[in-house]
C-alpha cells in the first residue's frame, strides 16, 4: 500500500463499506437495509482485491454479494411486505450499542495502530488459487473435511426447522 493511489482507493472503498454497513443496521425499511448489505459485501470484496486475494474476492462477490443476498431478498419478499416503512425491527438499545461499538473501536485503533507485525520475506507473485488449493488439500485437509460435515449438519438442520409437520 505504498502507492498513494492505492491508499486513496482503499480509503474510498473503506468509506463506502462503512457507510453501507451503517445503513444495514440503521435503515428502517428492511428491503433497503438488504440492498445496503450488497454494497457492504462488494466493498469488502474490493478490500480483498487490494490485498491481492483475488480468489477470495471473487468468492465474496459470487457467494455473499450474489447468492446470499439474493436468497435474503427472496426471504424478505416471501415473508413480509417490503413496502412497510418500519420493517427492520429496532429497539431502545441503540444508544448503548453505539457506546459499546465506540469503546471497541478506540481499543482496536489503539491496539492495531501500535502493533508491529512480524514480516516474512516477500514471495514471488503467483495465482492465489494455486496456493489455496494446495493448502486446502494438504495442510488444511482435515478442517476441509470437517467443514463438509458442518454443511451437512446445517442442511439437515435447516430442513428440520423449515419443514411442516
Amino acid at each position: 500500500m505504498s502507492d498513494p493511489l492505492v491508499t486513496l482507493v482503499f480509503y474510498g472503498i473503506a468509506a463506502v463499506t462503512i457507510v453501507a454497513a451503517i445503513g444495514v443496521v440503521s435503515l428502517r425499511n428492511i428491503y433497503r437495509a438488504a440492498l445496503c448489505l450488497v454494497l457492504t459485501f462488494l466493498g469488502v470484496a474490493g478490500v480483498y482485491i487490494l490485498l491481492n486475494a483475488d480468489f477470495v474476492a471473487v468468492m465474496q462477490v459470487l457467494i455473499y454479494a450474489g447468492a446470499v443476498t439474493t436468497m435474503l431478498l427472496f426471504a424478505i419478499m416471501l415473508t413480509r411486505s417490503p413496502g412497510s416503512p418500519r420493517s427492520n425491527a429496532a429497539n431502545r438499545q441503540s444508544g448503548l450499542a453505539l457506546f459499546a461499538v465506540l469503546v471497541l473501536v478506540v481499543l482496536l485503533v489503539l491496539a492495531l495502530g501500535t502493533a508491529v507485525w512480524p514480516q516474512t520475506a516477500p514471495v514471488a507473485a503467483q495465482s492465489s488459487v494455486d496456493v489455496l488449493a494446495k493448502q486446502l488439500f494438504t495442510t488444511y485437509a482435515l478442517p476441509f473435511e470437517i467443514a463438509s460435515v458442518l454443511l451437512l449438519a446445517a442442511m439437515v438442520g435447516a430442513i428440520i426447522l423449515a419443514r411442516e409437520d
Partner: peptide, 29 residues
Amino acid sequence: TFGMMFMASSGDLIAIYVALETASISLYV
C-alpha cells in the same frame, strides 16, 4: 458430538473453529 470431538482433538485454529461451528449449528437446531 462429532464437532465436540474435534474441538478436543484439534491442534489447529481453523480446525478448532470449524469443529466448534459444527457443534454449535447442530445445537442451535
